[in-house]
Design a protein around this nucleic acid. Structure first.
Lengths: 338, 338
DNA sequence: TGGATTTGATAAACCGGTATAGCTCCCGAA
DNA sequence: TTCGGGAGCTATACCGGTTTATCAAATCCA
């Protein structure tokens, strides 16, 4: 027989559909003896709930969504997303909730997806990444009343739940380390200026500079691509008073920067120290291996899932959870200046 | 008012639910005038179908699934998956079908997911990757009667639909190119031996060796990790008659191999030519940039989606589609031997 | 002991669509 | 003039669960 339904179980157990439903969901209304009997029969018939039928009862769909808005070609180099995804899933699988993943071209398309998901009842909540300054998605999700959690940034004034790491603190730890090594000319090759975390990192560098006695500490924004990372590095290293250390906002840009240094005959870490804000296998494969900030991205995802489930369970609450601070993994690309 | 239903539309249009359903699905049963009126009202009320309600009618769920069975930590370095995913989605979005993505630890867990999906009616079909020799998933999916398409390998004797590229041909083009440059000692650092494509590539090397007059052409299997790639390279380069060219089955291993060569004072491409079977930003960031086999992974995914939709529409058919041949992108890591 | 409450279970409504049997017109052919 | 038949639409059952109103029997308490 194909796919047993609760009606089949009811017939076999000699009870009503309702009783079976109560038994299977662990709610009161049946005696322990009956419950046990029903559960055993369900087990025997290897019954599984029909997800659509469940979802129809205006209840949850047991599915959450995640949209990544990036042009396809810039995606996938960073292990960041893969680890984040694994983490999110490990957080969800405990409750056997599934994840819908979508990759779209831009934020407009992303919002369109949220509207569709909301109106079609496809997900119970969503996870947001790459939060920008004045992000339009926050307002939209509030309007749609779709539970959401923001990763890596606070969701506006108590608007959405969030899971975030202290970028400021992390950046300070990098700059302080470089200053302690003796560097006085430090450059910061940042990411897209409209990302919230980019702003926070830039501010951290600017605020710390005077205190650490830095002569120079410019932050230069890019589109996160390897080519812009390389171009900016070329420009920095061509200056008469070139920096003795560069901090890159991503591992890909750091690797590109290392390539430029080698091509220009600038030795690393002799003439130039390099630090990547993101760690991955990339930074470890280099020669010299790059000093990088390591974050537990997997755990990040896991916590996001947890917070989202809380928010779904009680749509009123807004949770802002701060995760463990990232740590600086020192490798071969940093040393005192010549 | 929250979420209009077809009943609301029916009331407003002064017709029955059935008529509305006919009109919205473009099937006969209503006059053109009525249809037009209903469509306009639906548009005004911004009606969207409730996916669960649709799915309940024993029909399709408009959702397909994809499970990637890899330990979280080895995942995400290769842009391969990200591009594949984007491609799959672009193929699906035309029909506004959503994608469920799951990352699990091993094949056992993967099969468990298929069972759950099938019994809970969560997906209409699935996409398989990383096909192994005697893959247990093929049998399982046949048993579950879940439409499926295999990416990168044939699905057994007409068992499942598939989309594949000619690995043999691709490998031949690499080896022939190296032979033409004058290389006679070529090593092949392969992936996991139980993958079908690994087997095909190994066979291609073995078959071509005599014809091309190669003195030596060993294929050495690994677990695809950078560390094993490095270890094997170290061993190869320590031999008295070391190879003058190495072909790596993945970009990550090729990069690791390049690192080993540099660390051992073996110049690339002077003393050693390196070719990666997979292209990505990684290979381009290196110095020297690596010669690599470029595949249109995005298109691969798109075609897989297409074939899957065909298979879902008509569960009887088995489509085996061969995609465009990959091309060798020559960069700086290959040259005639010294 | 009798009325009030609790327990264990049932029948039926409901969620939002789809599918189908059947009804009413209206037209054309015999 | 009657009958067949198709177009256009309605009413209703159905999909597989959840939930609620209802009810009988058991239990409790004064």
């Amino acid at each position: 027989m194909a796919r047993p339904t609760i009606a089949d179980i009811a017939t076999r157990a000699g009870v009503s559909k309702g009783a079976v439903s109560f038994a299977l969901n662990g709610r009161p209304g049946v005696s322990d003896a009956t419950r046990e009997r029903i559960l055993k029969i369900a087990e025997q018939m290897s019954w599984r709930p029909h997800s659509a039928a469940r979802a129809l009862g205006a209840a949850r769909v047991d599915s959450v969504g995640m949209v990544i808005a990036r042009p396809a070609r810039t995606l996938g180099v960073e292990p960041f997303f893969a680890h984040l995804l694994s983490g999110v899933q490990s957080g969800l699988s405990a409750e056997s909730i599934s994840l819908q993943l979508l990759i779209v071209e831009d934020t407009a398309a992303e919002i369109e997806v949220y509207r569709r998901w909301a109106s079609e009842h496809r997900v119970d909540g969503v996870i947001l990444v790459d939060l920008t300054v004045k992000d339009p998605r926050v307002e939209e999700l509030k309007a749609l009343e779709l539970p959401a959690v923001v990763i890596g940034g606070r969701g506006g004034k108590g608007a959405l739940s969030s899971v975030w790491a202290d970028d400021r603190d992390a950046m300070l730890s990098i700059v302080e380390y470089l200053a302690a090594l003796g560097h006085r000319r430090i450059a910061h090759v940042a990411g897209t200026p409209n990302f919230q975390h980019t702003q926070r990192r830039i501010r951290a560098v600017r605020d710390a500079a005077p205190r650490l006695g830095l002569l120079e500490a410019p932050s230069l924004t890019t589109d996160f691509s390897d080519s812009e990372g390389a171009a900016i590095t070329r420009k920095l290293l061509s200056q008469p008073d070139r920096p003795t250390a560069i901090v890159y906002d991503s591992d890909v840009m750091a690797v590109a920067g290392l390539g430029v240094a080698m091509e220009m005959g600038v030795t690393v870490p002799g003439d130039l120290s390099i630090v990547a804000f993101d760690d991955s296998i990339l930074t470890q494969l280099m020669h010299p291996a790059l000093t990088a900030l390591s974050r537990d991205t997997f755990d990040f995802g896991r916590q996001a899932a947890e917070v989202l489930l809380q928010t779904i369970a009680d749509p009123g609450t807004v949770v802002n959870r701060r995760t463990a601070n990232p740590v600086l993994t020192v490798r071969e690309s940093t040393a005192p200046p010549a």
